[in-house]
């Protein structure tokens, strides 16, 4: 089945879940509601998109979109070589959506990364802890309202001296 067929079938079968379908620069993008993502991806996987190439998130604070956060899944079908982007939208008040770790093991670390950098929770993830930043890090650095230079975490360390007398020359 080609991607176009699969997509039209998806839209037929899940009219409530699918918000929109767009195309940009030759890429198909499927916009869906967050809570339905697991059902949809299970279907897409069964239809041939067997490889989750990438999972990431976008903060739509100034870009605009259906909701504040979009989690995007880049799927690949090894059979036909077609790619598909699925974007799941979730609101700021309740940033959570089902985990797809049960479908692809690669989602484990990638969902942890999204959690670490955006604070999006994945329900059903076996071990949702920070992956990139230290455990005591506060805030979610890739959100648009987090300053690039951080909140002083990079200057908060003890100063060590040599412990011996050294004359200043």
């Amino acid at each position: 089945m080609t991607a176009a067929n699969i997509l039209s079938k998806i839209k037929e079968n899940f009219p409530e879940a699918v918000l929109d379908m767009t195309e940009f620069a030759g890429e198909q993008i499927l916009h869906v509601r967050g809570p339905d993502i697991l059902t949809l991806l299970t279907k897409l996987k069964a239809d041939g998109f067997n490889f989750l190439a990438d999972l990431t998130a976008i903060d739509n604070l100034t870009l605009g979109g259906y909701e504040r956060f979009a989690v995007s899944y880049h799927l690949l079908c090894h059979q036909t070589g077609e790619r598909l982007t699925v974007k799941a939208y979730i609101p700021e008040e309740k940033p959570s959506l089902p985990s797809v770790e049960s479908l692809w093991k690669t989602a484990d670390w990638q969902e942890r990364e999204v959690f670490d950098l955006y604070g999006i929770k994945f329900e059903g993830h076996p071990n949702l802890i920070r992956i990139m930043n230290p455990d005591d890090f506060e805030g979610y650095p890739l959100r648009k309202d987090y300053p690039r230079l951080g909140r002083k975490e990079r200057s908060d360390f003890p100063v060590v001296d040599r412990g011996i007398q050294k004359k200043k020359s």
Partner: peptide, 10 residues
């Protein structure tokens, strides 16, 4: 935010 701006600070 996550890179130390010079190790000589510490």
């Amino acid at each position: 935010y996550s890179v130390i701006q010079g190790i000589d600070q510490f």
